[in-house]
Design a protein around this nucleic acid. Structure first.
Lengths: 114, 114
DNA sequence: TTCTGTAGTTCTGAATTTACGAACTATTGA
DNA sequence: TCAATAGTTCGTAAATTCAGAACTACAGAA
């Protein structure tokens, strides 16, 4: 099995980030990892956005988040340990990622209050 | 020909905005409209990102920007008058859109300086 | 060591989405 | 009414995404 690819900070692009966040499932996953900034394995996400997703689909979403440079994934035993790369990202893109996630979460709250 | 659809402010979503910006061509078009905030017709964009695009493709990109709520398009004679809805957007999503466009433009500048 | 269960990846075909040329609509001005 | 310009819509080919099945990797038990 191929080793997981993580781009260097300098190779992370705004286009990549925007592409990754174009799917609400990925925004949701990223927001959850960011909130609980520590261990997060795929199985925590079998339910995202009230939808049950097959693990192959989830694996693809994690792969995209990883290869675009938003998260770091490390194998810990059988599980995968996913964390955000937010410190690095902030050094290069400022508030871009927090602003997107903030807007996404704020909208979610409003929707609930109806 | 069907009249052009523009969503009401309350129907604009973060998901929609992120989806629209997942394509660099659309980010580029939006950034240009925002910069020259006044008349902007499609033909100004036959060249985007150093690529020549057919007008049917451009028309689709404008349609997506419009239907997601990012721009407003009005027919003025034979041409189309495209403007951003930035005041409305800011009232609802704060800095979301300016932050995204800012990050995109900042990256472009860095790339040029190499 | 081997077996079993758990976690995740890769492969593959089907379904969906996107791109773009051709044909069409709308408007203006000769 | 005709021609020219601007843009949209249609149809299909190309590319992308989804999800089930098969596979790999590791840990713990027998």
């Amino acid at each position: 099995m191929k080793p997981l690819y993580h781009p260097a900070l300098k190779d992370i692009t705004v286009e990549g980030i925007l592409y990754a966040f174009s799917d609400p499932v990925r925004v949701n996953i990223y927001a959850q990892i960011a909130k609980a900034d520590c261990a997060m394995n795929c199985s925590n996400f079998l339910e995202v956005d009230n939808r049950t997703l097959p693990k192959s689909t989830l694996s693809q979403h994690f792969k995209i988040l990883r290869e675009v440079g938003l998260i770091r994934s490390e194998r810990k035993g059988v599980e995968m340990h996913n964390t955000t790369r937010c410190a690095e990202l902030e050094s290069r893109f400022g508030d871009l990622v927090p602003t997107i996630i903030g807007a996404y979460l704020a909208q979610g709250k409003k929707a609930k209050n109806r």
